[in-house]
Amino acid sequence: MDLVYFLFSQTLLFTIPLLIVALGGMFSERSGVVNIALEGIMIIGAFGGIYFINMSQTHGWMNGLPLFLVALVISAVIGGLFSLLHAYAAINLKSDQTISGTALNMLAPALGLFIAKVTLDGLPNVMFRNTFRIVEVPFLSQIPIIGDLFFKNTYLSTFIGLFILVVSWFFIYKTRTGLRIRACGENPHAADAAGINVPKIRYLGVVLSGVLAGMGGLIYIIPISTEYNCTVAGYGFLALAVLIFGNWKPWRIAGAALFFGVMKTLAYTYGSIPILSSLGLPSVIFKLIPFVATLIILTFTSKDSAAPKAAGIPYDKSTR
């Protein structure tokens, strides 16, 4: 049973950042702006948060959960601001969204390393101590099974991620602004004719994706390292895959993120799982599973793909 709890907590380590970033991508794409800059936004958002944690831990400003929350807010704000560059290029300048997204991906690590080198004694890597793990939540951890799964050896980010999932679903499907975002992604001309300010709604979509991707970057790096080198190892792109796999819908994105999380976990822990290790398969097989499974599932589900129709096309009033 301990093994199950361990595997579950490891799965969340992969799932939660993927979920949050993919939800961010959903807001941007459903408003009609393709956002492949998720990777770059994660990098710069995580940089902001980790930089603050580093400062705070050296100077003793704060620690524990308050520090985590403040760092998360900083990551979100910096991610949001950084995504404005993409929004400006994609919406005001009507540029090719793939190119401006790529530009952000290239800019982010360089900018982060530069700031770190100039301000931190010439060191490009930002050190931090992970003091944010919650060993046990009082009372709630006593609940059988659920207590062990969710309330022991966990991070606050797990609950933030689930909260964001519910709020995202509510926001995109049950509010007026959500409807407008969806309209701008499907048929911006009709939305414009109905009196919706398309550029404004698209700005909202892109900035929301920046906020969530920035947070996702910080949540990604904290449990897995002791220093930050301005890289998130392609998880921004993986989140894009999760977004497509999840068919641009919040609950299916959650399912896709969980699927990736479980597969990634099995690929790297199978040696410690008696049933799997006794199979004697080469490790490559397990590492292949998530990608092969993605290919197969996408082949079968591509027919009812719900990609926003106007995603990637700059809005131009004069074309009909």
Partner: peptide, 17 residues
């Protein structure tokens, strides 16, 4: 030669086993 959640997971799995 760089950090990743995969390595973190594998190391934890080893330690747990």
């Amino acid at each position: 030669f760089s950090e990743s959640p995969e390595i973190n997971t594998q190391a934890k799995a080893w330690y747990n086993a």
